[in-house]
C-alpha cells in the first residue's frame, strides 16, 4: 500500500501539471461517488481552476476555488499504486471505506498517467491524526497521544 512518501512523490509530480489548470467542462457518468453529487457539481466545477494540490498523510487533495462553494477532491493511492479519489465538500463527510468502482470523472479531470486507475474514496481529512511532516509532529505531541497507552509501539505508530 503506497504511503506517505509515495503519495508525496506523486503529489510533487502532479503539482506543476495540475496547479492552476482550468477545468473546461465536467461530465458526470454516474449520480454519486459514495454520496450523491451536489446538484450543481458539474456546473460549479466547469470554468474553475485547481488552486492547489497537496498531501495529507497518504491522501492527495486538490482545492478547487468555486464561485458558489469550495470542493476538495481527495485521492488515495491504493495497493499497486493505483489512485483512489473522490470529491468531498469542504464541510466534510464521515470517513468510510473505499468505494469499489472506478471513476471516469476523476480520471479525466485529473490528467493522471494512464497507468493509474482512479478509485473514489470519501474521507474526512481532519480525522487522520498527527501529520508526520507537519510542524505539529514532535515528541511532546506524540507523548500526549501515547501517555498511558498499553498498545504496542508499532500499533500506536500505525494508527
Amino acid at each position: 500500500m503506497p504511503e506517505l512518501p509515495e503519495v508525496e512523490t506523486v503529489c510533487r509530480g502532479l503539482q506543476p501539471w495540475l496547479k492552476g489548470t482550468r477545468i473546461d467542462n465536467v461530465t458526470l457518468n454516474r449520480p454519486n461517488l459514495r454520496f450523491p453529487f451536489p446538484a450543481r457539481l458539474a456546473a460549479d466545477l466547469a470554468g474553475n481552476a485547481i488552486i492547489s494540490v497537496g498531501c495529507r498523510a497518504k491522501y492527495l487533495h486538490r482545492l478547487l476555488a468555486l464561485c458558489r462553494a469550495r470542493y476538495r477532491q481527495v485521492a488515495a493511492l491504493l495497493r499497486n499504486g493505483h489512485a483512489a479519489q473522490a470529491r468531498s465538500s469542504c464541510h466534510g463527510h464521515r470517513s468510510s471505506r473505499p468505494w469499489q468502482e472506478p471513476s471516469d470523472l476523476c480520471r479525466s479531470a485529473s490528467g493522471l498517467s494512464t497507468s493509474m486507475i482512479i478509485w473514489p474514496i470519501v474521507l474526512n481529512l481532519l480525522e487522520l491524526g498527527l501529520e508526520p511532516l507537519s510542524n505539529d509532529f514532535n515528541s511532546v505531541q506524540i507523548a500526549s497521544k501515547f501517555a498511558g497507552k498499553k498498545t504496542l509501539i508499532k500499533s500506536a505508530l500505525l494508527h
Binding site: 506517505l4 508526520p132 500505525l158
Partner: peptide, 8 residues
Amino acid sequence: MAGLSNIY
C-alpha cells in the same frame, strides 16, 4: 500517526 506504514 497519519500515513505511516509497516515499512516506515
